[in-house]
Structure formats: structure tokens, C-alpha cells
Amino acid sequence: MENLVEPFVELVRRAATDLPADVESALRAAKEREEPGTAAAGALEAILRNVELARERSTPICQDTGLPIFYVYHPRGMGTRALREQIERAVVEATRRAYLRPNAVDPLTGRNSGNNLGRSFPSFHFEEWEEEFLRVDLLLKGGGSENVSAQYKLPYAPLKAGRDLEGVRRVVLDAVYRAQGKGCAPGILGVAVGADRGGGYVCAKEQLFRPLNDTNPVPELATLEQRLLEEANELSIGPMGFGGKTTVLGVKIGAYHRLPACYFVTVAYMCWACRRARMEVRDGEVVYG
């Protein structure tokens, strides 16, 4: 396999320092909606200035560069061991260049490994696909937003949430309410309906790779996404939890087969700094975006 360490470092740099255009324009639209002079408007102005500054200087948008989560789609015959090893080397180098904060802490000793490598750190999902090219998607997900992510088991009596999309609606709103501003609102919700507990989070985070302005191909999920976006904003938690018109920038839902006995709804809360980046290698040529 060719040496892709430097292109992978560039992928990390882009994710950490260059907010995707769809997220930035959603933040701009949110700023326009807030009353000038309010704390909410001030927070969004600071966020937008920060996004520009980070891009200009190649410094991290947020100091919590989080857990790097790699979704790797590779063609037949490409070994995942070499891929993992090269990505890990790139993560170490990106940490050295201060694109990433050292974030891997051993829970037994309390020690930070210092280079973002550790057991199950970074996180990898490999999938062999039919395409002839390699795609690597990276999400940097910070700890604040991870702490307010939530998994519900339906039926959920406190909200009278049953095993249907109405039940899903109720628990997702509950998750937004419980998060308040703590996950760095306005957030983006990746939601998995179904799957098992572990798979729920994997699938919910995969939803976060969808562009904010896309439409869910499943009509009933598209309707639910739109309704939840409006209702979550009615909660008026607002940017940073200061109160305001925009609490959530997007809701992305996927439905996955479940066991007869289980009905999980998993809400992966992503902060406004939705740091995702994509890299593809086609015929030896590296393309980002």
C-alpha cells in the first residue's frame, strides 16, 4: 500500500480547523434570527469569528478536538492493518503539530498517553465496499457533546413514549431538553432508531456525516426530522443555553433493524463545531471534501 500518512495528517488538519460550509452557513442563518445585542447573538458572532480565525490560522476550532472517529470504506483487497497503522501515525503527527490536543486518558492510572493513541483510541470502523476507491470519513467529537448524548429504551414510561415514531419524537425532545446548553448548542442530532446498544451509537454518529441540507430518502423519517428540528427550537434553549431561537441546527435520523425485544433510540449529540472531513483516494490521487 502507498504511503498516505501525510494525506491523513491533512485530513485531520482540515477536520480540526476548517468547519464544513453547510454548518457555517447554518450558523450564519441562526445569527440572523437572533435579536441583535442579546447574549445569544453575541455567542453566535463569537462562534463565526472563531471559525474564520481557525481556518485562517490552521488552529483548532475547539480545543477539545475530541475522539477522532474514522469510518473507513476500502476496496476489496486493501488490508485494514496497514491503513490503521498509517492513520495512527498521522494522528500522532497531527498531535505534535497542535492540530489535536492529546486526549487519550488511561482510566486506571489517570495518565494521558500524550499522543492520542490508546486502547480503542482513536476509534475505527472499517467496511469493505464495492467501489474501487478508498474513502476515509473523520469526525472529531468532543467530550462535552458526548456526555449529553443519550440512549433510550422504548417504551419509556416517564414520557409515555411507545414503540413508534411518536415515541421516538418524545425521547429525542427529552434528550435536547436534558442537554440544555451543555453540549455546546446549537447542536446537531444524529439519531439511530433500532439496532443494539453498541450499534445504536455507531449508526447515530454515522448520521452526523450527512450534509445539513439533505433530505432523508425515507419520507416518514424526512417528516420527523423536519418536525423535530422545529420543535427542538421551540424549547428556546438557544446558543450556549443562553436562551434564543436556535437550539438545534439539524436532525438526522436512520432506522436500523432491531431485535423483537429491543427498541433503542440513540441520540448522538454533536456540538455546533461539527468537525467532519472526507478524503478519497482514486487512482493514487487524493481528493478532500
Binding site: Y177, E234, G243
Partner: peptide, 21 residues
């Protein structure tokens, strides 16, 4: 934080008030 928590709880209760299950 206390104020926003309280007002958002009122909205949540309204949004999930119709009884199902």
C-alpha cells in the same frame, strides 16, 4: 441556566402532553 431550564421544561411538557402508549 436555572431560568432556561425551567422555561424549556414547560415547552417540553406541552410538546409531549397528549397521552399515548
Amino acid at each position: 441556566h436555572e431560568q432556561v431550564e425551567r422555561s424549556s421544561r414547560d415547552v417540553l411538557n406541552r410538546l409531549v402532553s397528549s397521552s399515548t402508549i
